[in-house]
């Protein structure tokens, strides 16, 4: 099995941790794992992307048009990387919006959400939208939006057994184990397509 997963979001949202959990889960069952992280200055509230590649790959980067799944923790970040998605790819995105303060300076507005959802839907085979922010707050785990999104992936396009991911998460955050596993489960039980929820 080969799978290219591109993870996008804003610095501080836990994109790199999410990438590590995915790669470690693949490694645990003996699958190939390759990744590419964003480091340095770009982490300071900027756009962050992580390339996670499972299976027989050698290079760290997913090329454009090659991502099987695009997971995005921020609405507008989804469109920035949509050209990485393959023609029959899946998008799993949060409904979370984070408006950068520079928009005020340059007199630009955050794009209309419907327009983004339309655009994403037109370029993907399946689109799953998840209200990660309210879900995470309900769980009392504001930092676990990334794991909610991962839960959805485990439902709609699992690359390993669910229990493997659980084990990796439990080992990685022993002190926040319970709440993180709840976040994963919440996502797993919330695979809602964009057609059901947002677009008619």
């Amino acid at each position: 099995m080969k799978m290219n997963i591109l993870l996008a979001g804003v610095g501080g949202q836990g994109i790199v941790s999410l990438g590590h959990v995915i790669l470690q889960s693949a490694m645990k069952v003996g699958m190939g794992a390759k990744g590419a992280e964003t480091h340095g200055l770009s982490q300071r509230g900027g756009s962050v992307v992580f390339h996670a590649r499972i299976g027989d790959f050698l290079g760290p980067l997913i090329a454009k048009g090659q991502a099987d799944v695009l997971m995005s923790l921020e609405v507008a970040e989804t469109v920035r990387y949509i050209d990485f998605l393959s023609s029959n790819g899946t998008v799993i995105m949060s409904t979370r919006t984070i408006s950068p303060s520079i928009l005020i300076q340059i007199g630009k507005k955050y794009p209309q959400l419907e327009e983004i959802y339309q655009e994403v839907s037109s370029k993907a085979r399946n689109v799953y939208v998840v209200p990660t922010e309210p879900m995470a707050l309900t769980l009392g785990a504001p930092k676990a939006e990334n794991l909610i999104l991962l839960g959805v992936l485990m439902k709609v396009q699992p690359f390993v057994e669910y229990e493997v991911v659980e084990e990796v998460i439990a080992n990685r955050w022993p002190r926040a184990k319970e709440v993180n596993l709840q976040a994963l489960k919440a996502g797993y039980e919330y695979p809602t397509t964009i057609k059901e929820k947002i677009l008619p």
Partner: peptide
Amino acid sequence: GPNTDTVVRDDLVIPRPPTFC
């Protein structure tokens, strides 16, 4: 060559440079 037909709609992409925390 590889198919890279999907084009990002620039009007929907917002600048998000790194900022002071």
